[in-house]
Amino acid sequence: MKNFDFALLGARAVQYRLVIMLVAVAVFGGLSLDDFLTVNTLQSVLDRATVVGFLALGLTPVLIAGQIDLSIGSMMSMAGITTIFMQPVIGNVPAAAAGVAVGILIGAVNALMVVVFKINSLVATLATLLIFASLALLLTNSYPLSSEDPIFGLPLTADFLWILTPRSAIFLIAAVLMFVWLKLTPTGRNLYAVGSDASAATSSGINANGYIAASFVLSGFFAGLAGMMQSLSTAAGSPVAGAVMLIPAITAVVIGGTRLEGGRGSSLATLGGVLALGALTTALEYNGVPSYTQAIYTGLLLILLISLDRIVSGHGGASSRAQRSVRVAPRNTPLPRRNA
């Protein structure tokens, strides 16, 4: 009996984890700081969450499809330096579009590697992570590029609609749009099917490879968006801008509740994860907690949440499911051989 209650409590805790975390951070911040629960703080948390948010949002469909994309940071750096470099050449808005296009292009390369050449996404995107991080440094000779028109990007982080800034508004809209796509359209639901079991999805007539390819391109698009916004709002294109972004983005997605095993997740959960992590970081920073202590807290939180999730959801088989969904086996392979 007691055991049952405990399990139920655990299940509820997992279910409402984002609400619990946000409330906990608000209470902790409010109690420890006089100036935490203000409109300014809220605006700042939302605005700061934007860049990691775009990356995390792009990662969500990839994870739902049972894949992973480690190259988001490198795509972001490439998009940022492209945007800033192209500004004086083709004008501000086309340059921004070019930045996003570079993201899409690299996303397409990832898709090609995973879907056509059948390289495991962990390996393929590790390789493109290395390649494009290296390329960004080579192209810029390791120096950050300075924008020729630093004023253009400033409005992105200016005040806009009470607690928002233009870029955080775009981020929120993107999260909602993605939610609608994933949950309310047939193509969105098909993506979950692909992530749960690619071969089953294929045999029921879903073009699994197409969905996986699309998820990588989408991830590239969002990484491009993140790089473009970041570079414009800081008026600089740094070749290492995205180097530190991968881990926070994955952490945010997972804290939100999207699983690496595929077939489960939501963009609103990612939004919640991004905000919870952002609010926690801000509260700890305002309290002067050193970054390494923050890393300890974040790491523990991640382990705690994922353990709780695992214990509550009970039955195992997750790891084998992971492999099954990651492997997009060609149909009717007699002896499923796990190649990488």
Binding site: R259, P290, I296, G299, L302, I303, I306, R310, G316, A322
Partner: peptide
């Protein structure tokens, strides 16, 4: 333990422990 016995995804588990341990080493 996290990966073998609790069956947590290795990427996430080691991301978490790595973050904690590196933080501790700096501390």
């Amino acid at each position: 333990i996290l990966i073998g016995y609790l069956r947590i995804n290795p990427i996430i588990a080691t991301l978490g422990t790595g973050s904690v341990l590196l933080g501790l080493s700096q501390l």
